[in-house]
């Protein structure tokens, strides 16, 4: 599979004499079509990494490539941003217009597309996030989850190959979180869009194909959710928790019960416990 995002020895510091590094020589490769969650404690560098994938921040050292384009090349910046769309934490601060469809049309308008094409993309984008009935609504009448879906539609309208979401559920209630997570999954499965989900919610990360765990600017663990959450001690040392089901199995294992740790969902965990009790 083709790679969509690649970082080589990526290094970044917010100060000009590089005293504190936010990213320390990070090398990762993300193939197209993957759903990747990036986990990390506050200050682990996960948002900094996200901002490199959209050329908002430029590397202090090393390089970051989006679909083969070097983010340091200023002439490619619009192509990079069109390829890798970005959704931010606060939906209120990324909606530009006073009507939902006008907001979704913002990016295609900036691309200078003809009117018919804009209309087609707006309708398509709203449909793919399930907001087609709110075309004419004012954003401030919508719930947090709905606003964030509008923001995602605004990015989809660029037809990006990859969407980076920087803690998109941090300001939402549980219902809003579920809405966003199922929207993201459907975009990944049905439209083949690569998803980079920055989060510190373990249950959200567990839904991904692959998890990258960052700690103090370095890559701590890289693997499937099951592989990652088996490293309970490593996760805890990085200031992160594991899903509650894994935590339960881990505690049982510590007490000497021969259970595996790969029960990420409640029913999987129940199966493991059932098999253990039967044996």
């Amino acid at each position: 599979m083709r790679e969509i995002i690649k970082t080589e020895q990526l290094r970044f510091s917010y100060q000009s004499p590089e005293t504190v590094l936010a990213l320390k020589d990070l090398s990762i490769t993300i193939p197209e079509g993957q759903f990747v969650a990036v986990l990390g404690h506050n200050g682990s560098g996960k948002s900094t990494l996200a901002k490199h994938m959209n050329a908002i921040l430029l590397p202090s050292g090393g390089a970051c490539y989006i679909a083969g384009m070097d983010t340091r090349d200023k002439s490619l910046i619009y192509d990079i941003r069109r390829t890798a769309g970005m959704v931010f934490q606060n939906p209120d601060n990324q909606i530009v217009a006073t009507v939902v469809e006008e907001d979704v049309a913002f990016a295609p308008e900036n691309m200078g597309l003809p009117q018919k094409e804009i209309r087609r993309r707006v309708d398509e984008a709203l449909l793919s996030v399930g907001m087609q009935d709110y075309k004419q609504s004012a954003p401030y009448h919508l719930s947090g989850g709905q606003k964030q879906r509008v923001a995602i539609a605004g990015v989809i309208a660029m037809r990006p190959r990859c969407i980076i979401l920087d803690e998109p559920t941090a300001m939402l209630d549980p219902i809003g979180r579920d809405e966003i997570l199922s929207t993201i999954k459907s975009l990944n499965k049905n439209h083949g869009i690569t998803i980079i989900l920055i989060t510190h919610n373990m249950n959200e990360a567990a839904e991904a194909d692959r998890i990258l765990v960052l700690s103090k600017g370095s890559l701590l663990i890289d693997g499937t959710p099951k592989e990652v959450f088996e490293n309970v001690e490593t996760m805890k040392s990085a200031g992160l928790s594991v899903p509650q089901t894994v935590e339960l199995l881990y505690e049982l294992k510590k007490l000497g019960c021969p259970v595996s740790l790969d029960g990420l969902r409640v029913n999987e965990c129940a199966d493991i416990l059932y098999r253990f009790l039967e044996a």
Partner: peptide
């Protein structure tokens, strides 16, 4: 934040911009 979000959505002023509703 809005300025960054607008740049991420390819905003670069009025030059070459089209409209949904002409």
């Amino acid at each position: 934040e809005l300025a960054v979000a607008m740049e991420c959505r390819l905003y670069r002023g009025g030059e070459g911009r089209t409209r949904l509703k002409e």
